[in-house]
Design a protein around this nucleic acid. Sequence first.
DNA 1: GATTTTGATGGTAGCGTTACCATATAATCT
DNA 2: AGATTATATGGTAACGCTACCATCAAAATC
Lengths: 344, 344
Amino acid sequence: MPPKASTTPDPEARPPGRTVRITDVAAAAGVSAITVSRALNTPDRLTKATLRRVLSAVDRLGYVPNLMAGALASRRSRMIVAIVPTIATPMYADALQAFTNAMSQAGYHVVLGLGGFDRREEEQLIITLLGRQPDGLLLVGSAQSAEAKKRLAEAGIPTVEIWGDASPRADLQVGFSHAGVGEAVANHLCDRGYRSFGIVSSDDIRAMERLDGFRRTVERRGGRLAVQRLMAPPSTIMEGRRSLAPLLRALPEGGAVFCSSDLLAAGLLIEAGASGVAIPAELAICGFGDLEIGQAMKPALTTVSVDGAEMGQLAARCMTDRLAGNPIPRRIIVPVEIIQRETT
Amino acid sequence: MPPKASTTPDPEARPPGRTVRITDVAAAAGVSAITVSRALNTPDRLTKATLRRVLSAVDRLGYVPNLMAGALASRRSRMIVAIVPTIATPMYADALQAFTNAMSQAGYHVVLGLGGFDRREEEQLIITLLGRQPDGLLLVGSAQSAEAKKRLAEAGIPTVEIWGDASPRADLQVGFSHAGVGEAVANHLCDRGYRSFGIVSSDDIRAMERLDGFRRTVERRGGRLAVQRLMAPPSTIMEGRRSLAPLLRALPEGGAVFCSSDLLAAGLLIEAGASGVAIPAELAICGFGDLEIGQAMKPALTTVSVDGAEMGQLAARCMTDRLAGNPIPRRIIVPVEIIQRETT
DNA sequence: GATTTTGATGGTAGCGTTACCATATAATCT
DNA sequence: AGATTATATGGTAACGCTACCATCAAAATC
């Protein structure tokens, strides 16, 4: 069985086990390596015929470009680093999910950095993550340590901050004023006639900002802040349940509570249901976050709606525009809405 | 103001705006580039003195190693790609969070691939993600498209699958038998005396496997499956609420429902509370997932506990062991436990 | 028809790091 | 003391790709 034409070596023969490289594709397609590169990155710069030839070779050989080599050569990694405190919180998770999807659409990959709550670790994480040469950075909440901030600034890459406070730290911001939310809730509750107030909140920075706005407004409008329960994040339903009794004790004539999370508010509602406390007659409740649970409770929870997914999407748009060199606003304020349901 | 010693050029002077490279550090420390590399990667192979000298230069210059270049040269990217259907589900989010944290501890970064539910897109995503040259792969649930599976296999890198069914597709598995869960729940309910059953479930693959196990066991034990509500993922509390009425209609003499998610079960409980249906007297409920909401409901939800975070951690351990070349079991079964609370 | 312009393709030289081997020095042995 | 081994460091050549400039053919202009 003689080989058909063993004189010319098969251009597609490679030592087995070796990965397919761009030069293999080039050889198979009868073009140069750079042409293969162009076929994949800037296809309109090639003739239809060569393009087809190259793509067919790519397909035939199952070529997967080594993006690290490409990144090194082009100095564009097409990676975005996202630094998120945690994704165990639905709102952050939604934002990250939307962001990742949108960036992926635009040809970017997202590297996940979970900052957690330890500053030292966060700092270390940020530094090594910067070593990945990301083209952009997403900060969910702002970086905590000063050293980390310095490094981020020095890196000189587009940085979008979402969920942050209003401080002008980051390059680009997509967010809202937390203090403004507290203020709006206070006004809303005062308008509905409540005079005595309580707070159930986790003590993270952004929640505290909302509380400050709430407190100030309540005082300005002559209301009385009777009780305040602060706890370490993450907020849980159980903590909410446990909070009802002390709240009722502090607010014997009734009043309204502002919770830093719908989870806490839902806990209040569950406990109220179990112990026959009438909501909102004996206690009005306003949550924060507009999670599904609030909407699904009976009575349905009045809350503040912040669309995490929307923020993620906007951040992605912001990022891609910026990477493409388009001019973009330095700050985008997403609408925050009080959703009046049955608990106030 | 004459410069102090302009004859010898300052070894730390660089054109401004240029990033610090390994050679800059080498020059500043008076060693070769490779020594700097060793100082960072294999510090025990250097003298204490040189190590100190190099690290001090690293510090002084604020050197951040370019991990892409390192990866290209060493053929180890220290990146893991995680392919997750969605992180908008608490259980996947927990698993991913735990995995990412653990891998980060071990010096790996995690690139996030959200597969979603579109096969074509998932496939494309997997291919480009493989171009990043990950050292390992985490699959949450198994890859859907055949082409994607082929590519994954060809990539020849350690692949850990969590949350999968029991099929021996992946390289390494951390999971449990979904059918076994259904069976256990059925047995549990039959043992407690229930004879008529209902199902409220999303129709994703793994939930369906649990249902199959449940159904088979119910039939084997002479029970009757009276009603079955299937819906598209994701499962929501609201869907649960809407399911109560039809369930009660189909189970007028009472019975027990198996829900594919605690969220659905919680909806049932909320609706029952709102309409005065006694649980479990008029209807017994068993959930799945052991989310916080189930534990916090009143009455507290009987459910199946699967620790997502534990799976993520185990997967990470598995991965790092494998990457280090340690022998590891091909399959790890995590315990699944029925938590008997107040709804059955 | 000669010249300019445009567009398609290729050659070469890095991108910043680490693997591999070579070399020099110090430590250990007979 | 001389030979051997272990340890510390360096030089050079990749890793696989794209930027940059050069080249060449074809199309458009005068």
